[in-house]
Protein backbone atom coordinates (compact mmCIF):
# COMPACT_ATOMS: atom_id res chain seq x y z
CA UNK A 1 0.00 0.00 0.00
CA UNK A 2 2.77 2.40 0.96
CA UNK A 3 4.61 1.41 -2.15
CA UNK A 4 1.59 2.22 -4.31
CA UNK A 5 1.39 5.71 -2.81
CA UNK A 6 5.14 6.09 -3.30
CA UNK A 7 4.78 5.12 -6.96
CA UNK A 8 1.96 7.61 -7.44
CA UNK A 9 3.99 10.48 -5.99
CA UNK A 10 7.11 9.38 -7.88
CA UNK A 11 5.29 9.34 -11.21
CA UNK A 12 3.83 12.78 -10.50
CA UNK A 13 7.27 14.10 -9.57
CA UNK A 14 8.97 12.74 -12.69
CA UNK A 15 6.16 13.92 -14.98
CA UNK A 16 6.19 17.46 -13.62
CA UNK A 17 10.01 17.51 -13.67
CA UNK A 18 9.86 16.76 -17.39
CA UNK A 19 7.32 19.56 -17.79
CA UNK A 20 9.59 21.97 -15.87
CA UNK A 21 12.44 21.56 -18.31
CA UNK A 22 10.33 21.47 -21.47
CA UNK A 23 7.93 24.43 -21.04
CA UNK A 24 9.01 27.55 -22.88
CA UNK A 25 7.02 29.87 -20.62
CA UNK A 26 8.96 30.30 -17.37
CA UNK A 27 5.80 30.87 -15.34
CA UNK A 28 4.46 27.46 -16.39
CA UNK A 29 7.83 26.00 -15.44
CA UNK A 30 7.69 27.47 -11.96
CA UNK A 31 4.17 26.14 -11.38
CA UNK A 32 5.29 22.67 -12.44
CA UNK A 33 8.28 23.11 -10.13
CA UNK A 34 5.85 23.72 -7.25
CA UNK A 35 4.04 20.53 -8.27
CA UNK A 36 7.32 18.59 -8.29
CA UNK A 37 8.29 19.94 -4.87
CA UNK A 38 4.97 18.93 -3.32
CA UNK A 39 5.18 15.47 -4.93
CA UNK A 40 8.68 15.01 -3.51
CA UNK A 41 7.27 16.02 -0.12
CA UNK A 42 4.73 13.20 -0.55
CA UNK A 43 7.61 10.82 -1.32
CA UNK A 44 9.28 11.94 1.92
CA UNK A 45 6.10 11.16 3.84
CA UNK A 46 5.95 7.65 2.40
CA UNK A 47 9.61 7.21 3.38
CA UNK A 48 8.64 8.08 6.98
CA UNK A 49 10.70 11.27 6.93
CA UNK A 50 7.86 13.44 8.17
CA UNK A 51 10.02 16.29 9.42
CA UNK A 52 11.78 16.47 6.09
CA UNK A 53 8.46 16.51 4.25
CA UNK A 54 7.21 19.36 6.40
CA UNK A 55 10.43 21.33 5.85
CA UNK A 56 10.16 20.64 2.13
CA UNK A 57 6.61 22.02 1.97
CA UNK A 58 7.39 25.05 4.14
CA UNK A 59 10.78 26.02 2.74
CA UNK A 60 10.49 24.92 -0.88
CA UNK A 61 6.79 25.26 -1.51
CA UNK A 62 6.37 28.34 0.62
CA UNK A 63 9.70 30.08 0.21
CA UNK A 64 11.70 29.19 -2.85
CA UNK A 65 8.79 28.84 -5.28
CA UNK A 66 7.37 32.20 -4.19
CA UNK A 67 10.84 33.71 -4.63
CA UNK A 68 10.94 32.32 -8.18
CA UNK A 69 7.49 33.75 -8.94
CA UNK A 70 8.50 37.20 -7.66
CA UNK A 71 11.68 37.22 -9.70
CA UNK A 72 9.78 36.15 -12.82
CA UNK A 73 7.31 38.96 -12.22
CA UNK A 74 10.10 41.51 -11.71
CA UNK A 75 12.06 40.64 -14.84
CA UNK A 76 10.41 40.61 -18.20
CA UNK A 77 9.16 37.22 -19.29
CA UNK A 78 7.75 37.76 -22.74
CA UNK A 79 11.07 37.25 -24.40
CA UNK A 80 11.57 33.61 -25.42
CA UNK A 81 15.18 32.57 -25.74
CA UNK A 82 15.80 30.42 -28.77
CA UNK A 83 17.17 26.96 -28.01
CA UNK A 84 19.28 26.46 -31.13
CA UNK A 85 22.58 24.65 -31.03
CA UNK A 86 25.06 22.93 -33.25
CA UNK A 87 25.22 19.15 -33.53
CA UNK A 88 28.18 18.42 -31.25
CA UNK A 89 26.85 20.35 -28.22
CA UNK A 90 23.48 18.71 -28.78
CA UNK A 91 25.01 15.22 -28.70
CA UNK A 92 27.00 16.18 -25.62
CA UNK A 93 23.90 17.50 -23.86
CA UNK A 94 22.00 14.27 -24.42
CA UNK A 95 24.92 11.90 -23.89
CA UNK A 96 26.44 13.24 -20.71
CA UNK A 97 23.41 12.93 -18.38
CA UNK A 98 22.51 9.54 -19.88
CA UNK A 99 26.01 8.17 -19.39
CA UNK A 100 26.13 9.60 -15.87
CA UNK A 101 22.79 7.96 -15.02
CA UNK A 102 23.98 4.63 -16.43
CA UNK A 103 27.23 4.77 -14.49
CA UNK A 104 25.75 5.84 -11.17
CA UNK A 105 22.84 3.43 -11.58
CA UNK A 106 25.18 0.52 -12.26
CA UNK A 107 27.38 1.29 -9.26
CA UNK A 108 24.42 1.84 -6.94
CA UNK A 109 22.39 -1.18 -7.99
CA UNK A 110 25.38 -3.52 -7.88
CA UNK A 111 26.47 -2.36 -4.41
CA UNK A 112 23.12 -2.09 -2.72
CA UNK A 113 23.43 -1.50 1.03
CA UNK A 114 21.84 -4.14 3.23
CA UNK A 115 18.80 -2.95 5.16
CA UNK A 116 19.36 -2.60 8.84
CA UNK A 117 16.76 -4.49 10.83
CA UNK A 118 14.81 -2.24 13.10
CA UNK A 119 11.38 -1.27 14.29
CA UNK A 120 8.92 -0.65 11.50
CA UNK A 121 7.44 2.38 13.18
CA UNK A 122 9.68 4.98 11.57
CA UNK A 123 12.20 7.40 12.95
CA UNK A 124 11.38 9.48 15.94
CA UNK A 125 11.77 13.22 16.04
CA UNK A 126 13.58 12.79 19.32
CA UNK A 127 16.45 10.79 17.80
CA UNK A 128 16.71 13.24 14.91
CA UNK A 129 16.76 16.30 17.15
CA UNK A 130 19.25 14.80 19.58
CA UNK A 131 21.63 13.88 16.79
CA UNK A 132 21.19 17.25 15.06
CA UNK A 133 21.99 19.23 18.19
CA UNK A 134 24.83 17.04 19.50
CA UNK A 135 26.79 15.35 16.73
CA UNK A 136 25.94 17.92 14.08
CA UNK A 137 25.84 21.05 16.24
CA UNK A 138 28.87 22.62 14.53
CA UNK A 139 27.53 22.21 10.97
CA UNK A 140 24.22 23.58 12.22
CA UNK A 141 25.89 26.74 13.51
CA UNK A 142 27.93 27.07 10.33
CA UNK A 143 24.70 26.82 8.34
CA UNK A 144 23.25 29.63 10.43
CA UNK A 145 26.27 31.81 9.65
CA UNK A 146 25.95 30.85 5.97
CA UNK A 147 22.34 32.00 5.93
CA UNK A 148 23.30 35.32 7.53
CA UNK A 149 26.04 35.81 4.96
CA UNK A 150 23.58 34.96 2.17
CA UNK A 151 21.08 37.46 3.53
CA UNK A 152 23.61 40.29 3.55
CA UNK A 153 25.24 39.23 0.29
CA UNK A 154 21.97 38.94 -1.64
CA UNK A 155 20.85 42.38 -0.52
CA UNK A 156 24.25 43.82 -1.40
CA UNK A 157 24.41 42.25 -4.85
CA UNK A 158 20.80 42.98 -5.83
CA UNK A 159 20.65 46.56 -4.54
CA UNK A 160 19.94 49.36 -6.98
CA UNK A 161 23.08 51.35 -7.55
CA UNK A 162 22.78 55.11 -7.41
CA UNK A 163 23.67 56.81 -10.64
CA UNK A 164 25.44 59.63 -8.84
CA UNK A 165 27.71 59.10 -5.89
CA UNK A 166 26.67 59.89 -2.33
CA UNK A 167 26.83 63.56 -1.61
Amino acid sequence: MTFAIFLLFALMAVFSAVMVITRTNAMHSVLYLAFTVLSVAGVFFTLQAEYLGAVQILVYGGGIVVLYIFVIIIVNLDEVVAERRKLVPKIFIFAWPSLLALQVGTVVFLNRPAARPGPEGGLEFRALAEMLFTSYALPFEIAAVLLLAVLIGAVFVARRRLSRGPD
Partner: peptide
Protein backbone atom coordinates in the same frame (compact mmCIF):
# COMPACT_ATOMS: atom_id res chain seq x y z
CA UNK B 1 18.62 9.35 -10.20
CA UNK B 2 15.76 10.21 -12.58
CA UNK B 3 15.16 13.59 -10.92
CA UNK B 4 18.89 14.30 -10.79
CA UNK B 5 19.40 13.50 -14.47
CA UNK B 6 16.33 15.49 -15.53
CA UNK B 7 17.65 18.49 -13.62
CA UNK B 8 21.12 18.10 -15.09
CA UNK B 9 19.59 17.86 -18.55
CA UNK B 10 17.61 21.03 -17.89
CA UNK B 11 20.71 22.92 -16.76
CA UNK B 12 22.54 21.89 -19.92
CA UNK B 13 19.68 22.28 -22.36
Amino acid sequence: IALFVLGLFGVLF
